[in-house]
Design a protein around this nucleic acid. Structure first.
Lengths: 143, 143
DNA sequence: AAGCTACCATTAGCCGGCTAATAATCAAAA
DNA sequence: TTTTGATTATTAGCCGGCTAATGGTAGCTT
């Protein structure tokens, strides 16, 4: 009479969420970073000196979440805050030398993580999965 | 010189899962439940009176996580705890009438959520995505 | 110039994950 | 029988998400 809960896409996504976050956590904590911090660092490596609100928008996270993550990065001296001269409301986030230096290591760890994840699939499957996930992300309100 | 971070499977999975959890949260909070509680309830509907450790194993969650989620369900009178006669260590979790009554509503909401999610894809794509996610989940240590 | 509105950062507080550490119990081995 | 080890639940404390509410600033309108 009742549906097959475990076979819904929503269920599978939820399960993958938890599993993937655990794997990500293990993968990056060698570098002294936590899972959420990695995404902020990648964004800063692309463009240093962003405002918090822009980081939030590009990462698809709420401003308080970004603020909290930055707190940890500041404590560990990966980034610094600096007031933006033209606008006293916003602060700009800059990479420290330590934050810049860690990039290579993190990229290698990310590549290893990617190889691990992809190893469960064939090349075709991996490509297809990426395309399907990207298609879901095009509708942020639906995922 | 550096990799295309946004095009890795690991990145896409991380993004999709955050987005999906937000959608799930909105979907189920009409019923008075939170996102994590839903999975425990579905598990109890399948088999009432389980021990916490068995819930944790079947859900793929840590025992403290299940314990915390059950705290909320107990407070809101969706479940009750009862000692297992043969073993003083474990407790068994039972659905209350309120917990049993909410099943139909939750199932409908889940179906709506599923339709929403799947609507971004064709039938073939949705089926394929489910199969690929399921394949990833077969290797819990890799996702 | 004054005031309204929009924007940015921040705080507080919640839920959902986790690990590590405790306490109690059970079971098996010595 | 005692002791040792495994199991179960629980607590504490962390990170990563979120919403709601504050306070300060900018900017536009009047």
């Amino acid at each position: 009479m009742f549906m097959n809960f475990e076979n819904t896409l929503s269920f599978l996504l939820a399960k993958v969420t938890v599993a993937h976050r655990n794997t990500l956590q293990k993968s990056v904590n060698e570098s002294g970073l936590h899972s959420g911090q990695v995404f902020v660092m990648f964004e800063l490596w692309k463009s240093d000196g962003q405002r918090q609100i822009d980081l939030a928008l590009r990462l698809g996270l709420s401003p308080p979440t970004v603020n909290k993550i930055l707190g940890g990065l500041l404590e560990n001296d990966f980034v610094t805050r600096a007031k933006y001269e033209d606008d006293a409301r916003s602060t700009r986030i800059f990479l420290t030398p330590k934050g810049k230096a860690i990039r290579g290591q993190l990229e290698l760890q990310w590549i290893k993580l990617e190889e691990q994840t992809v190893s469960a699939l064939t090349d075709t499957e991996a490509l297809m999965l990426k395309q399907l996930l990207a298609k879901l992300l095009e509708r942020p309100e639906l995922v």
